[in-house]
Every structure is written in C-alpha cells, then in structure tokens.
C-alpha cells in the first residue's frame, strides 16, 4: 500500500503538469494584456484552441513526407518524457535514475530535431529560416542549461534531478541558477526578447514559423507540447529558488509549486511587456551571459563542496 502511495506521490507532479500546462500560457497572455490596458483572452484560451484544433481536419503539403507527419508526435512524446524526469515531487519524480537529466535534455533535443526536420520537410524558405535560427541558438541554450545542472549536481552531489533540487544548495548558487534558467526559458520558449510569439511575421519568428504548415490535430499537439515545455522550464526555475519541504503533504507542496510557476509566468509576461525584442546576435550574447552565470554558480558550488 505504501508503495502505491509513493508512486502516486511521484506521478502527481507529472499529472499536474500535463493538465495545467496550457493554463500558464493563459497567465502569460493575461499579464501582457494587463500591461497593454486590455482585458485579454480567457485564461483557458489554449485549452479551447487545442480542443478546437483536435476536432479539425488537416492539410498536408505535397512536398512533405512521413517525417513531417511523424514530427508532432515525436516532439510531444519527447517533451512528455523530459517532463516525466523534471516533474519533481518532494521525494522523487515519475522517472528517476542516476543521469536522468542527460536523458531529459537529450529528449528536448530530440523534440528540437524533429521540429527542425519537419520544418525543412515542407521546403519552405520561411520554415527553413526558423529552423536555421533554432539551430543557431540551441548550442548556447543547451550549454547554459547543462552548466547550471552541473552546478546543481556538484552542490547536491547527486546525479538525478529528483535528488538534485531537493538537496540543500547554497542560496547564491540557487539565485544564479534561477536567473540563468530564466534566460534559457525565455529563449527556449520563444518569448520576448528572444522571439516574438505575437507578431505573426514569417521573416522574424523562430518557433512559430517552423510550424507554419502544420494544421489540425498536429498543430494541437505542437501547441500542447510548447505549453508543456514552458511548464517544464518554469517548474525547474521554481525548484531552483524554492527549497523543497516547506509544507508537509504532497498536495500543499504542489500547490506552492504551482503558485511559484504562475509567478514565473507573470514575470515572463512582465518582461515581455517592458522589453523590445533583441537582434539575433544579441540573443546569442544573452545566452552566453546565461552560461557565464551558470558557470559562476558552478564555481561557487565547486568551491563550497570542495
């Protein structure tokens, strides 16, 4: 009985993520609307959108092959896999083993690979453009992300995400990790100042333009995967600064976590409202800056643990 209970506790955060992820996109949008002096769309808009898309037919370009049809499922499945590793409960995660973070990061890379290939499969110059930009930013985002995970690994002397963030990590390291992760979040989730999810201009977008030719259920899957990715990064950011075990039960813990995630999303909305978008070379510089912050966190962690 206790065993089932533990499993339930470990799986609960994953379920929360799977259910609540589209909601936080609504939070970002409402924040932006507030700053623009509008009411904004309903908080549940993305659920409606996904639901609508799932009931629609689809259009497939004749230029495309099975790669294009496979990609949305692959990117959704790999995002879910990564989420399973990064959805942390106080004592564990849905999936946890030494080195699981490597799998999670590579799962996200797989999602990227699938999206980039499906973009190239359409043979459209717009989508090629988005793919090329995605590939340009990925190495730096991934490096920054890996370094900050290393910092956590060193500080906690552990090799799995679940134990890593639960351990006592010194506060400066946590703060540096949070800032760095937040930058990576902005870039990886196509938010201003790295990308602009609202200006529907083919020539300037990154993520949105790669799915220009997707429609119907495929597009629904892509939207859902995108919201899961935002949830993943936001929840990690929360784990960076919020020590585990503030409340007793899993429910309380999760409620606190969700509140934290909503705060992160509001922060994203605020950043989007007060900043213009960067030039691409500056986005890259911003990622290098994030890597520097992560490295700093790592240095401190190494110093503390030595």
């Amino acid at each position: 009985m206790a065993d089932t209970n533990t499993i339930a506790v470990d799986v609960f955060p994953l379920l929360c993520g799977l259910v609540l992820a589209p909601f936080i996109i609504g939070v970002v949008n409402r924040t932006k609307a507030f700053f623009a002096g509008r009411n904004g769309q309903p908080l549940l808009q993305l659920y409606f959108d996904i639901f609508k898309l799932l009931r629609k037919g689809a259009v497939f370009s004749r230029s495309t092959t099975w790669v294009f049809r496979l990609a949305p499922a692959v990117s959704l499945a790999s995002t879910v896999s990564a989420l399973a590793i990064f959805s942390l409960s106080p004592e564990g995660a849905a999936l946890s083993f030494p080195g699981d973070i490597v799998l999670a990061v590579y799962m996200l890379a797989l999602a990227r690979f699938a999206t980039v290939l499906s973009a190239l499969d359409t043979g459209s110059s717009f989508e090629g453009m988005g793919a090329s930009r995605e590939v340009m930013l990925a190495p730096f985002a991934e490096a920054a992300f890996f370094i900050l995970i290393l910092a956590a690994a060193v500080a906690s002397r552990s090799m799995s995400a679940a134990t890593m963030f639960a351990a006592a990590i010194p506060l400066p390291v946590r703060i540096l990790m949070f800032v760095s992760l937040f930058i990576v979040l902005l870039v990886e989730n196509c938010r201003v100042p790295a990308d602009d999810p609202n200006t529907h201009l083919e020539l300037t977008m990154i993520h949105e333009v790669m799915v220009l030719d997707n429609s119907g259920p495929d597009l629904g899957m892509i939207f859902y995967a995108a919201s899961l990715k935002l949830w993943l990064f936001a929840s990690l950011a929360v784990c960076c600064i919020m020590p585990a075990g503030l409340t007793g039960g899993i429910i309380g813990e999760m409620a606190l976590r969700v509140a934290g995630i909503i705060c992160v999303c509001i922060l994203v909305g605020v950043v989007e409202s007060v900043m213009a978008r960067f030039r691409f070379d500056k986005v890259r510089r911003m990622l290098v800056f994030a890597s520097v912050l992560s490295s700093l966190a790592l240095l401190i962690a190494v110093g503390v643990s030595a």
Partner: peptide
C-alpha cells in the same frame, strides 16, 4: 490518436504555404 481524430474529417493535400 491523430489517425482517429482525422477519421471522417477532411484531409487535404496542398502546396506548402507559398
């Protein structure tokens, strides 16, 4: 799931957005 969802709905071949 996609196959199921698309069953009975319109699936059109078309050109890439030009």
């Amino acid at each position: 799931a996609r196959t199921l969802l698309l069953r009975g709905r319109k699936v059109l071949p078309s050109v890439t957005w030009d």
